[in-house]
Amino acid sequence: MPVTDQIVVRCRKGDARAFHELYEAYSKAMYNICLRMTGHASDAEDVLQEAFIQVFKNLDKLSSESSLTAWIKRIVVNHCLSYLRKKKVYFEEVGETDAPEETDVDETHHAMTVSAVKDAIGQLPDGYRTVLNLYIFEEYSHREIAGMLGISESTAKTQFMRAKEKVRQLVKLKTT
């Protein structure tokens, strides 16, 4: 039985040490998701704590076939989205023809550093940042993102394209 399975079994029995071990094993990665999606450390901490409360309360619902990491990640992402809905994040609806096709762009001439890109993503409006994070970092499809956010797939694609363009502009300004 893998170590995480053993921890889950112990958590289900009410072992406080196991809860701590589970939290320590996953909190850093899940905090990074929260931070990317909320854009603020204090908000990320709050969302993370709420998500882990949900994780601990629902460990009995975790099926043996489910990946613990994917299950926890899904709970964390859902809590982030719930937080953003409460903040009334705006997703601009667009028509089917407004979603531009993705094209390959030679970006090698831009001196994109990790910190410049991180800063640029942090400056994005919440809606753009949310779609960009879900697509790039959390690897959800545009269709999945649309379903999660209650928007059309073309709106998800457009928000993503606009977010990428805004990041390019911000990074270009910073590196020139």
Rank of each mutant, 00 (worst) to 15 (best):
residue 17 R to K: 09
residue 162 R to P: 02
residue 135 Y to E: 08
residue 13 K to D: 06
residue 127 G to Y: 10
residue 115 S to L: 09
residue 65 E to C: 12
residue 3 V to N: 07
residue 147 G to D: 14
residue 78 N to W: 02
residue 51 A to Y: 00
residue 116 A to D: 11
residue 169 Q to L: 15
residue 152 S to F: 00
residue 40 H to E: 05
residue 45 E to H: 08
residue 95 G to K: 10
residue 32 N to K: 15
residue 35 L to W: 09
residue 137 F to W: 11
residue 93 E to Q: 06
residue 161 M to C: 04
residue 117 V to W: 00
residue 142 H to G: 01
residue 6 Q to K: 08
residue 42 S to T: 15
residue 121 I to W: 00
residue 52 F to L: 10
residue 144 E to Y: 03
residue 50 E to N: 15
residue 99 A to E: 04
residue 68 L to N: 08
residue 116 A to N: 07
residue 110 H to R: 10
residue 141 S to V: 08
residue 113 T to D: 00
residue 99 A to V: 09
residue 32 N to P: 01
residue 115 S to K: 12
residue 52 F to H: 12
residue 78 N to H: 12
residue 29 A to K: 11
residue 6 Q to G: 09
residue 137 F to D: 14
residue 81 L to S: 03
residue 22 L to D: 09
residue 74 R to M: 06
residue 60 D to R: 04
residue 146 A to C: 06
residue 17 R to W: 09
residue 4 T to E: 10
residue 144 E to H: 06
residue 94 V to D: 04
residue 8 V to E: 04
residue 73 K to G: 10
residue 101 E to L: 14
residue 111 A to M: 14
residue 84 L to G: 00
residue 84 L to C: 06
residue 77 V to S: 03
residue 118 K to E: 13
residue 169 Q to I: 15
residue 89 V to E: 05
residue 153 E to F: 03
residue 1 M to Q: 07
residue 160 F to A: 02
residue 18 A to D: 03
residue 52 F to P: 03
residue 54 Q to E: 14
residue 114 V to S: 15
residue 45 E to G: 10
residue 146 A to T: 00
residue 13 K to Y: 06
residue 80 C to N: 03
residue 120 A to T: 04
residue 73 K to R: 10
residue 56 F to D: 14
residue 151 I to E: 02
residue 117 V to K: 13
residue 115 S to G: 08
residue 125 P to T: 08
residue 154 S to K: 14
residue 138 E to I: 11
residue 119 D to S: 13
residue 62 L to R: 13
residue 62 L to E: 07
residue 55 V to E: 03
residue 129 R to D: 08
residue 149 L to C: 05
residue 168 R to M: 12
residue 37 M to W: 15
residue 68 L to R: 08
residue 33 I to Y: 04
residue 106 D to I: 06
residue 86 K to W: 03
residue 146 A to S: 04
residue 55 V to C: 05
residue 176 T to S: 10
residue 64 S to L: 12
residue 18 A to N: 04
residue 134 L to Q: 06
residue 114 V to E: 15
residue 139 E to T: 14
residue 43 D to K: 12
residue 160 F to D: 02
residue 78 N to R: 10
residue 47 V to Q: 01
residue 27 S to R: 09
residue 99 A to L: 05
